[in-house]
Design a protein around this nucleic acid. Sequence first.
DNA 1: TTTCATTTGTCCGTATGTATT
DNA 2: AAATACATACGGACAAATGAA
Lengths: 86, 86
Amino acid sequence: MEIDHGIDTPVWRQLADILRAQIDSGELQERRAIPTKKVLIERHGISGDTVDKATAQLREEGYIRLVFGRGLFVVPAADRGAKSGE
Amino acid sequence: MEIDHGIDTPVWRQLADILRAQIDSGELQERRAIPTKKVLIERHGISGDTVDKATAQLREEGYIRLVFGRGLFVVPAADRGAKSGE
DNA sequence: TTTCATTTGTCCGTATGTATT
DNA sequence: AAATACATACGGACAAATGAA
């Protein structure tokens, strides 16, 4: 899964797509934290702002949820419908 | 309508609230462009990224719509339900 | 056609604030 | 006290689309 700066899909959306696919496939497990912001910055060679846009999108979709001071956690598919954030 | 950096409501959300109120009140008229990014930056003393976050929120709500190279235009209330962007 | 100005979205690198451990 | 973690914010830069000259 490589980020491509050359095509017309924004980098933040590509990252959101990658993370969503990893959640759907189980590579990122339910109730566990996704990689930290710092890791995503270093791994993909992108800025923190861009990571934020991707995670904001995923939070909006209900895929992940913020636990302050700890990280972003994968929401179980069963709880995706409606919860604390909405 | 003043932006306040001191309270816990993010600046980008405050700006979104201001613009939404101006649209609802008719101060910003339907089918007309909202103030440009540059104007909003100078008028409120905030950064371009912060303006972007506010306008992205309003686009998502269906209040405004992007016309590339021209500006962000107020969507008539009647068309807010569903249109080109969704 | 080419050039120039305008406008937006995207992106970077850094910094700060708040909460948790 | 210190490290970790995320959201927010800044200021600058670039690409693409539009319109005017």
